[in-house]
Simulated scan of single mutants.
Amino acid sequence: MDEQTTPKKTRRVGTLAFALVLILAGVLLMLYQLVPGFDLLWILRFSPAILIVLGIELLFYSSKPDAKVRFDWLSMLGCAFILCIVGTAAVLPTVWNLWGPEREHAASRIESEKVAGIYNALTGDPALKSRVANAHVKVWISHAASDSYALQAGDECALYLSFTAEYDSDEAFAADCQAVVQAADANGLGFTTYYFSSCDDLQEGTRYTLDCNAAFPVGLTAAQLAGRVEKEYYYDGSAFSTEADRDSYIRAQLENEIEQEYEATHDGESATREYLDSEVARRFAALNGTATPETAAA
């Protein structure tokens, strides 16, 4: 007679892990409701423990000769689903604090207050205030939510200010920038960064810019601060990074203009290089206000 074998029992790996995840998720959600400031992301930090539990289950059932091991895929999917639900619940408050409408409204309110504040701060210097073309403020709130969203350490508050004046030197522009910084500091406006510029709609001439952290101008003279000033050179609405680039552009434009004039008055004949060079030099000097009686008469 054949010896009958005992049928093996099916053991599903994953059921215990799913049960533990359900219990842990319930406990953490309860603590999240009852304990202020409780970090719900703990369940995500310890999610690798699920793999440990699955491994223990697999080893335990595999060691039994009468057990037939199968993975409980439905339970494993349930674990992943619970982790996604709890993780989403943990992340949503952070996302709301960073991009929610309350934070945006608070930033907009602070920006309006700061713009009014800088104009009030310049009231004591009417000449300087009259040279201001435009001022606006940008605020970035990075701290956690509060009742008022008042600016705190780590937040950014930048002033963008442009002047109407056309300055004749780096130092003159830097002096106005420094006066604005000092006025803002004296009135406790708390700007963290400054972005200054002259003549935003400039067509011809030199445009000055100065970007600096609020602490940088402290203790410097206007002449020292001028070393940080950057310039752009404009001609006919086009911007150039150096005077040499601008002058080359002007000379090329003049040469093309002179050549066309010469051909129109000489039956299509081209002008000589000597004539072009001398005429370009004369007109370029006239444009820059340096024409001499000799070049003007040429």
Rank of each mutant, 00 (worst) to 15 (best):
228 R>P: 00
210 L>W: 04
272 T>C: 02
230 E>M: 11
274 E>P: 00
234 Y>H: 08
260 Q>E: 09
195 Y>G: 00
228 R>G: 02
262 Y>H: 12
286 A>D: 09
251 R>N: 02
218 V>N: 09
282 R>P: 00
245 D>T: 09
216 F>S: 03
191 F>A: 03
213 N>Q: 08
217 P>E: 07
233 Y>A: 05
199 C>D: 14
256 N>V: 03
206 T>R: 12
255 E>Q: 13
199 C>V: 12
261 E>L: 10
201 D>T: 12
221 T>G: 14
267 D>L: 14
251 R>V: 00
202 L>D: 10
255 E>F: 00
195 Y>R: 08
227 G>K: 11
252 A>H: 11
203 Q>H: 10
198 S>Y: 01
196 F>L: 08
257 E>G: 05
276 L>P: 04
199 C>K: 12
233 Y>P: 00
262 Y>R: 06
275 Y>E: 11
249 Y>S: 15
285 A>F: 02
268 G>V: 05
280 V>F: 04
224 Q>I: 03
262 Y>C: 05
208 Y>I: 07
197 S>M: 12
246 R>Y: 04
259 E>I: 05
285 A>N: 11
220 L>A: 08
285 A>G: 11
227 G>N: 13
236 D>C: 04
256 N>I: 02
198 S>C: 08
227 G>S: 06
235 Y>E: 13
243 E>Q: 15
264 A>M: 07
273 R>E: 12
209 T>W: 06
198 S>L: 05
201 D>N: 15
226 A>P: 01
212 C>G: 01
240 F>L: 13
236 D>W: 09
207 R>H: 12
257 E>Y: 08
200 D>I: 06
240 F>K: 10
210 L>H: 03
195 Y>N: 07
284 F>N: 06
251 R>T: 01
286 A>T: 12
218 V>A: 15
270 S>I: 08
282 R>H: 13
226 A>Q: 03
274 E>M: 06
